[in-house]
Amino acid sequence: MNFWDKLMQIDRRVIFLFVVVAVTLPLFLDIPQKIIVSEEVERGFRELADLQPGAKVLIPCDYDPPSAPELQPMAVTAIKYCLDHNLRMIIMGLWPQGPQQANAAFETVLGHPVTDTISYNGKTLIYGRDWVNLGFQAGAELLIQRMGSSIPAAFPTDYRGTPIDDLPLMDGVQNFNNIDFVINISAGAPGIYEWVQFAVDRFGVKLFGGATAVQAPLVYPYFESGQLRGIMGGLKGAAEFETLVGEKGKATKFMLSQSFAHIIVIFFIVIGNVAYFASGGKRKKSE
């Protein structure tokens, strides 16, 4: 058995070890990385930046903790941007854990638990006036369709049971016509597809989407056709969003690990192919 044959039979656990080291080691390093902002993130951000203070931004968080490493940085950055620029947030979720994830993102921005009255950068923000959390409602795409005709009918109360009529921010919010912009952070269905199909194409909603990297290639056609105003794809998209907002958060920090991991993957793909051809194209017969 020559060197190449041995390489062809390398234990998969050795590769796992390399990947773990490649992912973990950069967490200890502080090497600045240049994040190149793509057009799809920049265009979405520009639309967000064009909003006037007081504009109402709907933030449907359609994801759960398993997707948080990719999507939570997007939620944190979106909430921070809205707070910094006096945009009023209406948080909701088509996934049960989504509004909880948004709440966790809010806490990350504040650095402490969310209360009804919060002090942020010298401003006093009040729940119900500056932001609301409508919580989760079952119904998926049917709920979006219902919101198109009546948001109060779709969400009679917020997540803690307060009637929607008692929330000043929801005064005059009848349907999507009264929402200025939507930032949907989505891990699957129901999520960005449903928002495009039921909110954008039926009711003309302006949608900036954040998707997991698995989803991203599938929703890019919606950006090319103009149905999506912008799209953040996975951790890279989140890092680009952070760059535009000027916030070096988790996504930017994780990009170094991501780069190292990609180098390792490419290295093993190359080594595997070289070893395959150098060993005469013999396939390993058993694990």
């Binding site: 990947v19 773990v20 992912v23 973990t24 967490l27 398993p66 997707s67 948080a68 490493p69 990719e70 997991t212 990297a213 698995v214 991203a216 290639p217 794809g233 996975g234 951790l235 890279k236 988790k250 994780f254 690990s257 991501q258 991991a261 990609h262 993957v265």
Partner: peptide, 16 residues
């Protein structure tokens, strides 16, 4: 490629 990036992101999240 995107799927690899996504799975790596989840691993990074857990290692972090």
């Amino acid at each position: 490629g995107y799927t690899v990036m996504s799975r790596m992101s989840l691993l990074i999240g857990r290692m972090d």
